[in-house]
């Protein structure tokens, strides 16, 4: 049983409400399910299909396109070692090799205790801080082999619990639009006329609509 919990269904409904069309909420909801279960389960995909009114196959089709979604259980911490050019120039290959040795798993594997999954990754937008890695999508910069060992020890001892949430949780804050403040999403087919602050006669220039 890994459908979304009642608590998360309430969140899901709020997310769906942010969009003019409900399918737009698909990716955020798959994230939500991964936050709940640590990975994306079949039941969760079926549940999301119900919530956004598509087929489960459509949920799978979209979700499997994106690398952050895991369809099998992974460690509590997913460690992504960047291997693209800037990091590769500054020792990413050696760092990944060291990580494999330290954790005792090949890249792509999960430690025997189920705590850490090691993955090679593509550019993480911290190129000036090479070599870099992410733990559950939170950066560590200019990582030496000693830094890596220390980080693993800290993950194992629980020292980083408050800083790094378990796999599946991204931002630790969520957007909430209060009912009395939000404009509200309107289905595009139901929008009549332009926004009120745009004068009907003098709308912004249209210089090349047909380009």
């Amino acid at each position: 049983m890994s459908r979304l919990s009642d608590h998360n269904v309430a969140i899901a409904k709020e997310i769906i409400g942010h969009y003019p069309k409900q399918k737009s909420a698909l990716i955020p909801l798959v994230h939500l399910s991964q936050e709940q279960n640590g990975y994306v389960t079949k039941d969760a995909m079926r549940h999301i299909a119900e919530l956004v009114n598509v087929t489960p196959a459509e949920v799978l089709g979209t979700a499997s396109f994106y690398e952050m979604f895991k369809f099998e259980p992974v460690g509590k911490y997913v460690v992504n070692v960047c291997t693209t050019l800037s990091c590769a120039l500054l020792g990413a290959g050696e760092l990944l090799h060291h990580a494999e040795e330290k954790l005792g798993v090949k890249a792509g594997g999960t430690t025997a205790d189920g705590l850490i999954t090691l993955e090679p990754a593509e550019c993480q937008a911290a190129c000036t801080e090479a070599p870099c890695l992410q733990v559950n999508y939170r950066h560590k910069y200019r990582v030496t082999h000693d830094d890596f060992d220390q980080m693993v020890d800290d993950l194992r001892s629980g020292k980083l619990e408050s800083e790094i949430p378990a796999h599946g949780t991204l931002g630790m804050q969520r957007q909430h639009i209060p009912d009395d403040k939000g404009v509200g999403a309107v289905h595009p087919d139901d929008v009549v006329g332009g926004p009120v602050w745009i004068p009907v006669a003098v709308e912004p220039d249209t210089e090349g609509a047909s380009k």
Partner: peptide, 29 residues
């Protein structure tokens, strides 16, 4: 910013109203 009236309905008391929705991807360059 919503709480302070910079986003949402009638921003800063004008008839300018717009929602900004945070959306996030899932790993695809």
């Amino acid at each position: 910013a919503y709480a302070a009236g910079y986003i949402g309905k009638n921003i800063l008391g004008t008839d300018f109203s717009v929602d900004i929705v945070l959306h996030w991807g899932a790993g695809a360059y």
